[in-house]
């Protein structure tokens, strides 16, 4: 076989890597482009702030936006403290024994369980066994269970990024372990935890399967009064209007998709900028 000159093989491998990158990016760009092209005409203030009308074929998606917002906020309020506490325990306190390693392994693997499994779990435990019914709280708990491993993993990463030497210095000055965590470790891990949380919010905002049986309703003609109410949710609403309703205007479907996508993308960008900002301010 002919041997390629170093220069040529350099060029070839560069091309190959470039093509692979394009293959990853182009479909995403096409999707975004199509959604914007077909959906932007539906987007206006009324679409975002009014109730659906005419069997959801007209009007707005306000209750679905509110529903998604309510479920996701509840889920984060539950997940964040539990996840951060678990991460602190695993990283700063737990002895490195068989049980700890088993728990860490389980957490990593739980992040890979399909989300529909969590949905069924939520239906069994929260909706039926705990009799919470199909409700915001049941959906939020289900999303929490699903997102906990991710939050724990990011929080542990953030805690690990604080140099061990800072802990040693603090302890060597007679400061207690908890005060060291509270005053040295947590403040310096906060940025990482925060960006991880924003990404988690973005991720669970788009999830359908976990809320399908636990929180989301086909159509609710009013806004929720409490966390025990059923709500409409953007991803599920999108699924319904694109598959279940005949003669659905195309721009409303795409418009709904556009709203959901913008919510998720905005949060991801906020997370990216937050990360850049905190990295610049980092003091070591």
């Amino acid at each position: 076989m002919m041997k390629l000159s170093p220069k040529l093989s350099q060029k070839l491998s560069y091309m190959l890597l470039f093509i692979a990158t394009m293959l990853a990016i182009i479909p995403v760009l096409i999707i975004i482009f199509l959604i914007i092209k077909n959906g932007y005409s539906a987007i206006n203030w009324k679409f975002l702030t009014s109730m659906p009308e005419d069997g959801m074929r007209a009007g707005g998606i306000f209750p679905a936006i509110i529903g998604t917002f309510a479920i996701v906020m509840c889920a984060i309020v539950i997940t964040l403290p539990v996840g951060v506490c678990a991460a602190i325990y695993l990283n700063e306190y737990a002895k490195d024994n068989f049980l700890t390693r088993l728990i860490k392994l389980a957490i990593v693997n739980l992040a890979g369980v399909p989300s529909v499994v969590y949905g069924l779990f939520g239906l069994g435990i929260f909706v039926m066994f705990l009799k919470l019914g199909v409700s915001i709280i049941a959906g939020a708990l289900t999303l929490s269970i699903m997102e906990l491993p991710v939050i724990i993993t990011t929080a542990r990463g953030a805690l690990n990024s604080v140099p061990q030497s800072f802990r040693e210095v603090s302890l060597s000055l007679g400061v207690s372990r908890w005060q060291t965590i509270r005053h040295i470790v947590l403040p310096n891990a906060l940025s990482g935890i925060l960006t991880g949380t924003i990404l988690s919010i973005a991720r669970i905002s788009g999830e359908t399967a976990p809320i399908l049986f636990t929180a989301a309703a086909f159509y609710v003609p009013r806004l929720p009064d409490s966390i025990f109410d059923q709500v409409m949710a953007l991803p599920y609403h999108l699924y319904i209007i694109s598959t279940q309703i005949p003669n659905m205007p195309k721009n409303i479907i795409y418009g709904t998709a556009l709203v959901l996508m913008m919510m998720v993308l905005t949060m991801s960008f906020v997370a990216i900028f937050a990360r850049i900002y905190f990295r610049k301010r980092r003091k070591w």
């Binding site: 030497s165 800072f166 210095v169 060597s172 007679g174 040295i184 310096n188």
Partner: peptide, 15 residues
Amino acid sequence: RRRVGMLFAMPIPLP
């Protein structure tokens, strides 16, 4: 540790 302080080889200021 309050009575016996320690200085490490590398200076480690807290951030």
